[in-house]
Design a protein around this nucleic acid. Structure first.
Length: 524
DNA sequence: TGTGCGTTGATTCG
DNA sequence: CGAATCAACGCACA
């Protein structure tokens, strides 16, 4: 049988050659294969992506290109809106089949729907595959009696009724079909992975984590080396103050699909079987993978999951609109070293420990500043190399006690929480060198240090390092009362609606616009 | 309608 | 260092 046809493999997430069913389908029985990634302006129109995050993506693309090249292919990187670009290239290149991995994020659903329609008109066959999550969110809902599981437990009971997650499919073949040699515009349009400078970045990336399937697989192997550690893993017992991460840091690779969740899962289950005794969800490593699938599932089925307004799961809360407090948090100058050090770690590394994220998220919202979780979500989305739509939004609602979690009286202290893990404040001193000579005794509350101690440490509070922007002891108590009132109000649909109607989204937008205004001021 | 539980709080007491 | 207490939420299930 002679091979005919030309397929286009569209990479979005799933930046890998292992466990990639769309790739296997695209490479099957065709004469030529066009592996494509689109740099879609949609993802940086709302806010500029942090340099670490965009670099992680570019590194992942470069790695993908290398791996494809080793198999006689290459990665074609296109610039622009895929809804415009793809129809053009499949016409130019004579593409007969379009293959990609399903993406359930709201923007992706809309985009892919539209592209599906365009493909139909152009008589391009479309084949899609579910391989980003362990379970299909649609199937999970079915298994739960047609209702969306809104708690982890409900999710667990739903998936317990389902077949286990599919095993990873076989790796990409050693030889892939080539790109058609004279495909019109293939070389001009697809100019390889862009440099940071080309897309307007002048700053260098600062993170020590690097993207790509190769790095991902190496990290997976290393993470699973110590099987005893694997089977004893309990997330809450790992330290948020460790300078060498106390967890796997596989999340950025999971976000971009440099690693397959199903591969990770299969390996964990194998080790658990081997060792017999092991920890269990929700705290175990398998439990962590299930959290990811839980948020993907509930997020997919909840309208306006990434908003407070119009989100049926989300408590309607009249958060303060305070650009000054928000910016102090965002830029790591709240005057609470534990909070600021974590925010600096976010800027530098694009990654923080899960409990560190809890600390700063609680602080921004119900704990101290009483600023909307959606602003914190945006900061994380901009700077985290593992920022993942459903997981990020879900966790922000959790920490702000807007959904999933309702014991709002459990507040993280910006002073004592970190102390439990790091009495000497090594973490703080690493990320806030201005405090490096502050005695351990004052490291979590430097404003309490006597003047001569501050002088000796060459760190005057209010000059070299900020005074606290709010007083935690009093503010968190005020907030507790406000949360109690908000919860009471949410019991009444009428009052809930009143809060929604009165919540000024424009005011929230102004907070974001402030940064643009600042830039203008600097130029003047 | 009551009860127990919920991935990861803080403080105090023994 | 573990347990009780603080003040007290919503949800699932009996």
């Amino acid at each position: 049988m002679t091979k005919k046809g030309r397929s286009l493999l569209w990479f979005r997430k799933g930046l890998r050659l292992h466990d990639n069913p769309a790739l296997l389908e695209a490479a099957k029985d065709v004469e030529h294969l066009f592996p494509v990634f689109c740099i879609d302006p949609h993802f940086y129109e709302k806010q500029p992506i942090g340099v670490n995050r965009i670099n992680f993506l570019f590194e992942s693309l470069a790695d993908l290109h290398e791996s494809l090249s080793a198999r006689g292919s290459r990665l074609l990187v296109l610039r622009g809106d895929p809804k415009q670009i793809l129809p053009q290239v499949w016409k130019d290149w004579g593409v007969t089949k379009l293959c990609y991995e399903q993406d359930t994020e709201p923007y992706a659903l809309e985009r892919d729907n539209e592209i599906g329609e365009l493909a139909k008109k152009a008589k391009v066959e479309v084949k899609t595959f579910l391989s980003h999550t362990l379970y299909d969110p649609v199937e999970v809902k079915k298994a739960h009696g047609g209702k969306t599981p809104e708690t982890y437990k409900a999710f667990q009971s739903a998936v317990a009724k389902m077949p286990p997650p599919p095993s990873p499919v076989r790796d990409a073949p050693e030889k892939l079909p080539t790109i058609a040699p004279k495909a019109k515009g293939a070389e001009e349009k697809a100019t390889g992975v862009p440099t940071l400078a080309e897309v307007g970045y002048t700053d260098k990336p600062t993170t020590s984590f690097h993207g790509g399937e190769t790095k991902a697989l190496a990290r997976l192997t290393k993470s699973l080396e110590d099987k005893e550690w694997v089977v004893q893993f309990e997330k809450p017992k790992t330290s948020p103050a460790a300078l060498e991460p106390s967890t796997t840091v596989l999340s950025p690779y999971m976000k971009f699909g440099c690693i397959s969740a199903r591969l990770f899962y299969a390996k964990l289950v194998q080790i658990e079987k081997e060792k017999k005794k092991h920890t269990s969800p929700p705290t175990s490593l398998v439990g962590q993978l299930l959290w990811r699938d839980f948020f993907y599932t509930v997020g997919y089925h909840t309208p306006n999951f990434h908003h407070m307004l119009g989100n049926p799961l989300c408590k309607q809360i009249q958060w303060d609109v305070d650009p000054v407090l928000y910016k102090a948090w965002d830029e790591g100058r709240t005057g609470y070293p534990w909070i600021d050090a974590i925010m600096v770690q976010l800027q530098q590394q694009g990654w923080m420990h899960h409990l560190a994220r809890h600390s700063v998220a609680c602080f921004l919202t119900r704990g101290d500043l009483y600023v909307s979780w959606t602003l914190g979500r945006d900061t994380f989305d901009r700077l985290l190399i593992d920022g993942d739509h459903f997981v990020n939004n879900g966790n922000w609602m959790w920490l702000s006690a807007s959904a999933f979690f309702s014991q709002f009286f459990r507040v993280y202290s910006p002073i004592t929480f970190g102390k439990k893990y790091d009495k000497q404040g090594k973490f703080i001193k690493h990320f806030l060198p201005v405090l490096k000579d502050m005695p351990d005794k004052y490291i979590y509350e430097p404003w309490t240090a006597p003047e001569e101690v501050q002088k000796k440490a060459k760190c005057i509070i209010g000059k070299d390092y900020p005074k606290p922007v709010v007083e935690h002891a009093t503010k968190h108590k005020d907030n507790l009362n406000r949360m109690k009132s908000a919860y009471d109000a949410n019991k009444s649909p009428q009052k809930r609606k009143e809060i929604s109607d009165g919540f000024d989204e424009m005011a929230r937008a102004e907070v974001l616009d402030m940064e643009a205004d600042d830039d203008e001021d600097e130029e003047k």
